[in-house]
Design a protein around this nucleic acid. Sequence first.
DNA 1: GTGATTATTTGACCGAAATCAACGAAGGCC
DNA 2: GGCCTTCGTTGATTTCGGTCAAATAATCAC
Lengths: 227, 227
Amino acid sequence: MNRIMRPSAWERETLMGLPLLSRLELDTLSAMLEIATVRTIGPRQVLFREGDLADTLYCVLSGYVRSFHLSPLGREVDLLVHEPGDLIGASACLHGHAYCASAQATDSVKIVQFSLQRVRELAARKPDLALALAAGLSGQFAGSLSTLADDRLHTAPQRVAHYLKKQCPQGSRNVSFRLPYQKNLLAGKLGLAPEALSRAFSHLKRYGVSVRGRLVQVNDPEALQSV
Amino acid sequence: MNRIMRPSAWERETLMGLPLLSRLELDTLSAMLEIATVRTIGPRQVLFREGDLADTLYCVLSGYVRSFHLSPLGREVDLLVHEPGDLIGASACLHGHAYCASAQATDSVKIVQFSLQRVRELAARKPDLALALAAGLSGQFAGSLSTLADDRLHTAPQRVAHYLKKQCPQGSRNVSFRLPYQKNLLAGKLGLAPEALSRAFSHLKRYGVSVRGRLVQVNDPEALQSV
DNA sequence: GTGATTATTTGACCGAAATCAACGAAGGCC
DNA sequence: GGCCTTCGTTGATTTCGGTCAAATAATCAC
């Protein structure tokens, strides 16, 4: 079911908009495009597993990929949801030789992949690439710290309120939008059991939030501050 | 109380052992040493606060520094404990212009600091430096993800057991050692209230762990697996 | 040492969220 | 359309860990 291919003209356009590639010098960029492979992977397909030898760097073009840990007892914990533009496997990129989490497509996902070996070689000669990698890592690191703080500090309704507020444009009112993925996954991302997410949504009714399926309407995003 | 100075010969020795500097080419290394400043900061002194303009990159030489978030209501959440060799403020290094957490010395701490401006300029010319930064970030990112997984997956006694096990040499028995910092801080690092840490220790007695002050004795590190 | 802080432990209590179980809703397939 | 599977909600119950308060141990300054 996988389609593997050289980037088409249209895809080159998309690729060049990626945070990883958009700031590169021309020759670095073309070297990266040279080793880029675009793939489409189907729902639930696994990109790699925790502990696998890390030989590939991925970057999401469209769709969502979840990273998770497997406990010794077989329980799964969601750690991150990678959105379009995000790197996957970057933490293994320069550090270990094994991926430290498993990655799975949530839906149909389009990604670019690069040989980690080649990326390392190129980055060792091209500071702009090394810095772009560092910038990507930096952003993900900051993100994971803020998730950790959120987990340790806020209750379930607060975390959900916080998430919803981030989705609303600054200072807007009566916003409505579609959740980008299943509630199941959203619950995992927020460190909650699905039941807890459900209860949190119903708790948030009183703050002007209504949910029908994946459609969410937020009456007054500012009011979510006080949850 | 602060001592600020050019690195002495002895300190240059220490500096060159840092993960950040140890793999650099000679000219990059000397450029970094050129802009390095060694400081000693006293207990509880604050290095920077969340939101401050990020203009300095730090690296711990000795002692421990804690990073924490401040909630709107004034509650503090510990996020990381930086050990000797760790970078501080690296996530701001290439990403934002503000620190995303506050940093405070836990005790008397010796650090090196570098002008972020200069580091950025140097890294833009020197791929080895850019890669060293990326490697440091990569390790911290992996660490924060594993903390997150630990938080979401394990109970308090399990987290403490896991921590203790990491401190014991592989396959050893009857290990005893001193906790590197106060229980207060250890509790924060593990995402626990001090009371919960205390209770966890007392729960672990039955697995052959005894604690007196900061002295810990672990009878059989392998047995901690089954907590 | 002695007193004054500051850490740590213990107990009682409470609230948040996980778990288990059962039910309702939605979407895919034929 | 109707069956079937997966997803989401709701209720009951339980467990974990946070909070408050008080007692005890350490540590520091003098």
